[in-house]
Design a protein around this nucleic acid. Structure first.
Length: 330
RNA sequence: CCGCUCUUAGCUCAGCCUGGCAGAGCAGCCGACUGUAGAUCGGCUUGCCCCCCGUUCAAAUCGGGGAGAGCGGACCA
């Protein structure tokens, strides 16, 4: 696999391909970043972008993880003290999940976002952005039930972070794409380069296969889940024997979240996946890549229940170190 | 600053006029059927009716005050 393929593996969107190809020419020392609002416990959404960061590290890139305490505050996620408290725990969980400590720099937003120069640049961006544009950019990520002025400032700070953290490649889930597009539009207004971005897919809701897995409603897999929690959640997941389920009765598109998790969480971290299967159903199955697993689920050779059992076991293995960390933190 | 509308189950809302057991759809949960889930069928759960004060035998419902949300207007020397 060449560097470009490795860097863009499993992403939904590359902006722009030419820019990433240029990065892939000499990835060593290039800097990628993701910003996260601190939350007490890593969930599967955090882990998805973290997996991508690990792949970028394997390709030779350095990684900055922004623990976006100021952003979380602006997004109505609680008091500053509470938020900063969780940031440190989050860092430990990322390391436990597998980010390389040598190649990862953790930065707290408040370390540089109050600098005079930063704030002046921020105001310059504000001057170049309409409220409705900022609001649209935030549509997918805002917390709370009404739009605050702080939430209009939020995406502009993300744009500036890319400049101040000296980032070559901005990573985020697909919910971040409008923010990143805003950054590409507005940064040239202060004579900065439009950032190169890649967006990871969003995992569908575990129980319905529709929309995106939400941390607030529905079922989410997080680092504090016990082995039993994971088994129960995965077993309850929507999983027709196909990668392309029929739409729901009301017409909404559905995905197969079990396959998605195999594709985006398990195969990037394991060379080989062994599905343990009772003798009466034919014994164990072994897969070296995601495509062959999907094909056999589709053909009926692999039964969804056996796939689920295997998925729960691999997920548990991925989460176990972080789970230990969380227990130690309490 | 002024005016109008809204606030009831996890969600969308009905009920308010004309006071009398707190409702529906969806979601959720439990079973049946499937070697998973979903679909289907059967059953079940769910409440600070935004808050306070008042009227009344009795208030989600009527009156007063307040809060939050949405919309409009005014001001622009």
């Amino acid at each position: 696999m060449d560097a470009y393929e490795q860097i863009t593996r499993n992403v939904s969107e590359v902006v722009t391909e030419d820019e990433v190809r240029a990065l892939a020419e000499s990835p060593d020392g290039k800097r990628a970043y993701v910003g996260y609002e601190p939350s007490g416990v890593l969930h599967i959404g955090h882990m998805l972008t973290a997996t991508k960061l690990m792949e970028l590290q394997d390709a030779g890139m350095d990684v900055t993880v922004l623990l976006a305490d100021v952003h979380a505050y602006l997004n109505d996620k609680g008091s500053f003290e509470e938020i900063r408290d969780t940031a440190e725990r989050m860092k430990a969980q990322f390391l436990a999940y597998g980010l390389d400590e040598e190649q990862t720099e953790f930065v707290l937003g408040s370390e540089f976002q109050f600098d005079r120069e930063y704030v002046l640049d921020l105001h310059a961006l504000e001057l170049n952005t309409t409220l409705s544009r900022a609001e649209r950019a935030m549509a997918e990520i805002k917390g709370g039930d009404s739009v605050k002025v702080s939430q209009a400032v939020y995406p502009l700070m993300q744009a500036l972070d890319i400049v101040y953290l000296d980032v070559d490649l901005a990573i985020g889930g697909m919910e971040q794409r409008k923010v990143h597009m805003l950054a590409r539009d507005v940064l040239p207004a202060i004579d900065e380069d439009a950032p190169t971005c890649m967006h990871t897919p969003l995992i569908a809701d575990l129980s319905s296969g529709a929309g995106k897995m939400s941390s607030s409603t529905g079922t989410t897999i997080s680092m504090e889940d016990s082995t039993k929690d994971i088994e129960e959640k995965v077993n309850a997941a929507f999983c027709p024997p196909t990668a392309n389920p029929d739409p729901a009765d009301d017409g909404t598109e559905r995905e197969n979240p079990v396959l998605q998790i195999f594709e985006y969480h398990v195969f990037p971290r394991f060379e080989q996946v062994v599905v343990e299967r009772p003798e009466k159903y034919g014994g164990n199955l072994t897969y070296d890549d995601y495509a062959s697993l999907e094909a056999e689920l589709e053909s009926g050779e692999l039964h969804p229940m056996d796939a689920k059992t295997a998925l729960a076991s691999y997920l548990d293995e991925l989460i176990a170190p972080g789970r230990e960390k969380i227990r130690a933190q309490k």
